[in-house]
Design a protein around this nucleic acid. Structure first.
Lengths: 140, 140
DNA sequence: CGGAATCCTAACCGATACTG
DNA sequence: CAGTATCGGTTAGGATTCCG
């Protein structure tokens, strides 16, 4: 049998999900937003790049790659594509000799950036406190 | 000269990370926050449980499991443990006949809940717009 | 320069079974 | 009721190579 395979269980769970936690019909979006690279890309394009009042303007692919340092091009490209698809940023190709590609937040993207910035700020402000709790917990 | 192996690249990238995107020393926290179950648990305990003005009070393990429907107990337990460790919620065991365990947001957890609620609201409010962009993108 | 495609490993996560 | 432990499949995601 094994008729209860992964796909079926997924479908069932998904259905129950919308039924029960009806408060979150935005689950798919939440999943997408709750991605660390998404948050960081929004930070970078939103101008939170370097503490100092950076230009919130468009950034090239290589600039993003440098800003996000730890990211692989696969993840960066994947993230940028999904954000473009969702209308959160625009991708502009300038056919110079070596091609130039820039990314810029749309208005929709900017509005989300406001929220994710809040997340980032929270994390920054409360990190010491959280670290304290962790030590205390681990010491038990 | 494959001296540049994975581990080395990781270490190097990590170092650059803190140096370049120094704006995000809170990366670890961001990763933790950017978890879908974390957001949903905060929603539930924060009182966003059912649209109507729910009691933001403590919830039992089984109540959380029912609210989050799609979650496995493994993920739920794991999420609750990490949130407890970070001091975002408290776990209270009442030694009744079948033991009773309740979870409740701490002040720290409540403050984060405010932010994640913003995330959820954004997702809800802009979902149609995003879906529109997706269709448009996919149709190209 | 800015990707796309391939391979392959590690982590996540769900299902199941067992415990106090 | 509220977990813990284990196993196995799915997937995320890094390294590498090649293309326009």
């Amino acid at each position: 049998m094994t008729t209860t395979n992964a796909a079926q269980n997924r479908a069932r769970a998904k259905a129950e999900y919308n039924a029960f936690l009806a408060v979150c019909p935005s689950r798919q979006l939440l999943d997408r937003i709750s991605d660390k690279w998404v948050v960081l890309v929004l930070c970078a394009l939103g101008g939170d790049g370097a503490g100092a009042p950076e230009t919130p303007g468009p950034l090239r692919y290589s600039e993003l790659a440098r800003l996000l340092a730890g990211v692989s091009q696969k993840m960066l490209t994947q993230t940028l594509r999904s954000l473009e698809r969702d209308g959160l940023l625009t991708r502009t190709v300038t056919p110079t000799v070596p091609v130039t590609v820039t990314y810029e937040l749309t208005e929709l993207g900017s509005s989300l950036h406001e929220v994710t910035r809040g997340l980032r700020n929270w994390a920054q402000n409360h990190m010491p406190e959280v670290l304290g709790h962790r030590e205390e917990y681990d010491a038990r």
